[in-house]
Computed example of a mutant assay.
Amino acid sequence: MPIITSKYKPSIIFRNGYISTIYPNILRKVKGVSQKRERVELDDGDFIDLDWSYALIQNSKKIAVIVHGLEGNGQRQYMLGLTKYLNDNEWDSVSINLRNCSGEINRLYKSYNAGVSEDLDQIIHHILTKYTYTDISICGFSLGGNIVLKYLGEDRSLPIEIKSAVAISAPCDLYDSLSEINKPKNYIYQQRFIRHLKKKLYERQIDFPDILSKSDIKNCTSIQDIDNLYTSRAHGYKDAIDYYSKCSSKQFLKNIQKPTLILNAKNDSFLGNLCYPFEEAKNNSNVFLEIPNHGGHVGFYLPNKIYYNEKRTLEFFEKPS
């Protein structure tokens, strides 16, 4: 499918990628979203918490499944912004809080990573078993976008109810994305991620002292150190590089059979060149690649409280193209 020409043209100040990235996280406040939590028991004895929000019309048959990014949750402003806009346009929505991201430590040693498509699969089947939705569309932000793309392109039979998907600011090549995050321009972001990830590891160490030591956690000075120590081993990979290689969604894009939009801004400081899958989009009629010049990482600010990525997601859900 040819690359889509983007219509996103923000005001001058929001053409700066750093401002686009920072502003929604610090100053955006989405109001008017009501969430109802449901705990789903997983096959391996763990749990995932879902945050449901409903359209004003009753008994909507359309549901949007939304997956957050690294160290996110269902209450992040980008999650609430999309939820509100979808609810206002007759879509129910459910935000998945990945394991260990809902405010309560999960039961097992493993938690979540950029490739936990099996958890997304269980949630989709839970929704289809318990509820009566006929149209399911999926949206993933950042790490969640990688999960969604991997899920769609893996060797599995997808439910016919899944109609479309959108991945926003998706690190399609995980190592390439990490290499960008490690650059001096992203030092503040990198340190923030490390601080949050280590905090959760210290919490996990209390429950699993024989597997994880405080000194090992303390010695982690990078995201890759954390992925070598915990993320890879806890989820069955040899090391961080093995995890990045096997979980990067780029390799799965050629197999996607549902209409899927990838919205990655050109000035996203977290994405390297390999995270823009031009060839994969050109060779698969189901993959639509839109690369606005601006937007930063999960930015896409517009002045009317509805961001461009939210408008674009609904537009694609309603008419995939």
Score class of each variant (00 low, 15 high):
272 G>M: 10
279 E>P: 01
77 Q>H: 08
199 K>T: 02
122 Q>L: 11
66 I>V: 15
37 R>Y: 04
51 D>H: 07
86 L>G: 07
254 K>L: 06
292 P>F: 09
15 R>K: 15
248 S>C: 11
134 T>Y: 05
294 H>T: 12
133 Y>D: 08
259 P>G: 07
5 T>G: 03
296 G>F: 09
178 L>A: 09
50 L>H: 01
39 R>M: 03
34 S>I: 03
215 S>R: 11
94 V>R: 07
40 V>K: 01
44 D>I: 05
256 I>K: 09
298 V>F: 08
43 D>L: 05
15 R>Y: 02
282 K>I: 03
153 G>E: 11
212 L>Q: 02
28 R>N: 01
156 R>A: 11
177 S>V: 06
280 E>Q: 15
4 I>Y: 06
148 V>N: 09
264 N>G: 10
175 Y>V: 03
134 T>M: 02
288 F>I: 04
54 Y>I: 07
33 V>A: 01
211 I>R: 11
206 I>L: 14
4 I>V: 15
130 K>V: 12
208 F>I: 04
86 L>E: 07
201 L>V: 00
155 D>M: 02
63 I>K: 13
215 S>L: 08
226 I>K: 03
201 L>T: 02
299 G>F: 11
259 P>A: 09
205 Q>G: 02
85 Y>V: 01
321 S>G: 03
150 K>Q: 14
249 S>M: 08
249 S>E: 09
136 I>L: 15
253 L>F: 07
307 Y>V: 11
50 L>V: 07
300 F>W: 12
76 R>C: 11
130 K>I: 13
312 R>W: 09
52 W>S: 11
87 N>F: 04
321 S>L: 10
277 P>G: 10
255 N>Y: 14
83 T>Q: 12
270 F>Y: 15
88 D>W: 02
318 E>F: 00
298 V>R: 08
35 Q>Y: 10
178 L>Q: 15
285 S>G: 02
181 I>W: 01
206 I>K: 15
240 A>E: 05
81 G>P: 05
292 P>M: 12
265 A>C: 12
97 N>K: 09
275 C>P: 11
109 Y>I: 13
287 V>N: 06
73 N>L: 04
191 Q>P: 00
275 C>G: 05
162 I>W: 09
63 I>T: 14
